[in-house]
Write a protein that binds this DNA or RNA. Structure first.
Lengths: 139, 139
DNA sequence: TTGACTATTGCGAATGAATTGCATTTACAG
DNA sequence: CTGTAAATGCAATTCATTCGCAATAGTCAA
């Protein structure tokens, strides 16, 4: 097993989860994914590694991994949720309204403003996410 | 009819939509709502005014009104979408993770930062929304 | 006003993402 | 190795939302 696989196993154990083929498969698929796959796409890719995986397991695994903080669920409007490996730094998303492409946005400054805004109201932020729908400008 | 009802009728006509009892009812309910009701709640309230309204009509009307820019759909994680009258100034939302209460946030500054961010990537913003989940700090 | 045209509605059935019950399998502690 | 609870696969279910279709009701022109 590669170093990465070992890391996933440790991460699972630290989260109090058993290390299963299915969980390792989904984690490695998400780690390698350049895009933000949804449950069906994850199932299709996972079956390339282990053709017995079921959709129910994909959903249950994704919930468990999200709860453990290992992955992030990205709920978009009118389409199935997409998933990504939990980013080291939190980031927001920009969806190209024409192509559906998802672009990751960094902005510490925005995060700081939001934290201040919440604090002013007497709240501490649990999670925050900005979703921008945008159209590519003609070059 | 009150001035408000007349305004709604004009708004509908300007959007190229027929002025129906159902649309007026939903618009006035949303205008008066202090909260952010979902489709079921809107149906229940609408039946107080017109007990023949159907859930299908609620959904179809909400889509039409949203498309016309008269209302805004607020998609939350794991629960039915909620709706609000289209605000004069765009704003974001903070959801209290303990009570489910939705608080509206103003931040021109954040909006400006997001527009800049998008422009830098060659995009023009179609819509943008920030959802913060937060916990009330002990006084 | 009246009639005609077509958007809108109500109803029930259908859809589709996500969840669940249950019997079987598997991880892993002892 | 063995026992036990956790995890899985499958099929059935849930629930928000959408759709087909016949009936109704806005709107527009005469």
């Amino acid at each position: 097993m590669s170093a990465e696989t070992t890391d996933f196993a440790r991460a699972l154990r630290e989260a109090g989860l058993r290390v299963t083929q299915q969980r390792l498969a989904l984690l490695s698929i998400l780690m390698d994914a350049a895009d933000h796959p949804n449950a069906d796409e994850l199932l299709a890719r996972a079956r390339g590694l282990d053709d017995s995986m079921s959709l129910a397991t994909v959903y249950r695994t994704l919930s468990a991994l999200e709860e453990a903080g290992l992955i992030r669920k990205l709920s978009l409007e009118g389409e199935p949720a997409r998933y990504e490996i939990a980013p080291v730094a939190e980031h927001d998303h920009l969806v190209d309204v024409e192509t559906g492409e998802v672009i990751e946005l960094e902005s510490d400054e925005i995060n700081r403003l939001r934290a201040e805004l919440a604090a002013k109201l007497g709240y501490e932020i649990v999670s925050q996410h900005t979703l921008i729908r945008a159209r590519k400008l003609r070059g």
